[in-house]
């Protein structure tokens, strides 16, 4: 009986009929865009949840990167290019490996 209930929950959650919090965030992953221009990262998104997408868009004339301090991601961004990661929970501190004065932090819940 218990197994049946779990199965039912799982099925409902997967089809979106019953949205517990964890499944909902996976189903409704939001995209948070960070714009890079003139040697700086634009405003940091807020309310980012694990499973959401963080996207960097490089509008600068220079090549940049979004490189995690802890090494968990390293996104190269040529001028005009975009790159994305799936956010994992925690405080994501990142910098540009070419321009170390460019630093930022996003909090992922």
């Amino acid at each position: 009986m218990f197994r049946m209930m779990i199965l039912m929950f799982g099925l409902l959650a997967a089809t979106g009929g019953f949205p517990p919090a964890s499944a909902a965030s996976a189903a409704k992953a939001r995209v948070h865009v960070i714009v890079i221009d003139k040697m700086q990262y634009g405003p940091m998104p807020t309310g980012v949840r694990a499973g959401d997408i963080i996207e960097w868009t490089n509008k600068d004339i220079l090549e940049h990167s979004a490189t995690a301090r802890d090494g968990r991601f390293d996104v190269d961004l040529k001028p005009g290019a975009s790159g994305r990661i799936t956010a994992t929970a925690g405080t994501l501190a990142f910098f540009c490996k070419f321009h170390p004065t460019m630093t930022a932090t996003v909090v992922v819940e």
Partner: peptide, 8 residues
């Protein structure tokens, strides 16, 4: 900003 970053 670029030159400062290059200096660093």
């Amino acid at each position: 900003k670029l030159f400062q970053s290059h200096q660093m």
